[in-house]
Amino acid sequence: MDAKLIKIDSLNFHWKKNSDFQLSVPSLTINEGEKILLLGESGSGKTTLLSLICGFISPLSGNITLGNTSIDELNAKNRDRFRADNIGIIFQQFNLLPYAKVIDNILLPLYFSKKRSSRLDNPYQTALDLCSSLRLPEQTKNMKASTLSVGQQQRVAVARALIGNPSLVIADEPTSSLDMSARKIFLDLMFSQISENQSTLLMVSHDPSLADHFDRTINIEDIIERSH
C-alpha cells in the first residue's frame, strides 16, 4: 500500500491571462489507496492543482507523475486518453448529461477508455451493481438524469467515476450542494465503494469538519509556495 500514486516535483504554473495568480508546488506525494482531503479557501489554487493532476492543463515547469507515467511529458491527446483510462472525476454539481439516461451516464467513460471497459465482463451489470451499492433505486436506471434529486445525481456521478476501476478518483467539493444528512449518506456510500474498488481518492473541500473521514488531510497552504 505504500507505492506512490501521485508524485509532484517542483511544479510551476500560472494562467496566461491572469499572471497575478501563481502556483508552485515544490513537492507532494500521495500513496496508492490513500484517501486524501485537500483543504483550502476558494481561490487558493485547489481546482487548478486538480486540473494539472488530471492533465487538463500542463505545468510551465516541474513534473507530475501518476503511477509510472509522467503526464507533463504527454501531449494533449495522450493526456486526454490517460485521464480517460486512469481517473474518475466528480464535480461539485451538474455532473451528469441531463438529457441522457442514468445508466448511459454511468457507462459514458467506457466509450473513451478501452482499458476501463476491458476490465469489465458485463458493463451493464456492473453499472447496476454500482447503483444498488450506492442505494440508487432500481427504477432510476432508465430515468433521465435531470429528473433525479441532487443527492442521487451525485451518487450517480460516483458510480460513473468508479466504473472500470480507475486508479484515482478526484472529487471537487462533491458535497457542497448537499445538506448535512445527505452529505453523510453520500460520503459513507462513496467511501465504502472506493474502498471496495481499492482506488485512491483525492477530494477537495473548504470544510475542515470532513477531515475525520479521511486517512490524511493536506492543507493547500502547506504545500504551495507563494512567490509574492
Binding site: C54, F56, A76, K77, D80, R81, R83, A84, D85, I89, F91, F94, N95, L96, L97, P98, L108, P109, Y111, F112, S113
Partner: peptide, 14 residues
C-alpha cells in the same frame, strides 16, 4: 460549458 466539462472529464478530446 458544464456539459463540455463532463465530456472532457470522461476523457473526450477537444
Amino acid at each position: 460549458r458544464r456539459e463540455m466539462a463532463i465530456w472532457r472529464a470522461m476523457g473526450a478530446t477537444p
